[in-house]
Design a protein around this nucleic acid. Sequence first.
DNA 1: GCTGTTAATGGAAATCATTTTCAATAAGAA
DNA 2: TTCTTATTGAAAATGATTTCCATTAACAGC
Lengths: 154, 154
Amino acid sequence: MRHRHRSGHQWWDGRFRGCGYRITVPRQVILDALSKTNEHLSAEDMYLKVHKIHPGIGLTTVYRTLEILVGIGLLSKFDFGDGRARYELAEGPKGERHHHHMVCTSCNRVIDYTDFIDEEKDLLNKAEKGLSKKHNFKINGHSIQFYGLCSKCS
Amino acid sequence: MRHRHRSGHQWWDGRFRGCGYRITVPRQVILDALSKTNEHLSAEDMYLKVHKIHPGIGLTTVYRTLEILVGIGLLSKFDFGDGRARYELAEGPKGERHHHHMVCTSCNRVIDYTDFIDEEKDLLNKAEKGLSKKHNFKINGHSIQFYGLCSKCS
DNA sequence: GCTGTTAATGGAAATCATTTTCAATAAGAA
DNA sequence: TTCTTATTGAAAATGATTTCCATTAACAGC
């Protein structure tokens, strides 16, 4: 097993402390797991993953940590219609990773795509400007998803 | 109180029977309520609304009926992040009513908008074609939502 | 219109994700 | 090292939705 960074000094460290949160083992382990995957993990997925190595970490803590990370913008939270929230790193050490999702309505598989992001950005910017003016609404986020059948299911 | 259509002969009638479903009082009442509102009702909202006039109708039946309606494409089901599903007529007697939503992350108000729908359609068509080719994914729906603060909350 | 078959109903109980409670523990400032 | 206080984890609570199951009602066939 490769050696592990002990205390602090991760890319998310500053952001984390800056918000007044303590850096604890469960939080490090969870962030570590998040930065090593590009799956769309549910809280329980994360719990099981983390529990293998650190059986002490409880499901409650996983929920709490994920919620904090969403709060400070490090994580994005999604609902793909299968009754549980799913999480994904919003920013990695290398910066933004903007993409959207296609969800298979049969097997629930989720495919990330980055195609058309530029066109989408154009449209979204235009829409944001127009909508915020017309409806006096301060927009600070959006979500786009396509639903359908993946190659295996169709 | 105004007289009520008894048996069948509503605009949804054909579609409904066509799928092999019986036309029952609870189903008529629920569809009736849906076609008279443009709120984004949760199952419980619907239950309360319907329960005033027809106290016999149970919450379970409301859930079941809404799910059937989603199944045959008459209803759209949304998640606006407040922990309960919300429903909205997908098609009315007058046909499609395509629009998207802005959700206030503070008060949970939802605003429908129809601006930019044409541009969105263009983009979505293009995206659909490209994505289905590249990822071999049969797309048959999408969802777009903006999140932010409404005029009251900002 | 009456009847039989079978889908639909509703109340209670079950389920499942998520949240709350609370006493014990550990982070990190002093 | 010590002290304060945020964090933790187990268990219990919550809240939306589903399942069970005995009763009722739609409607096809007479």
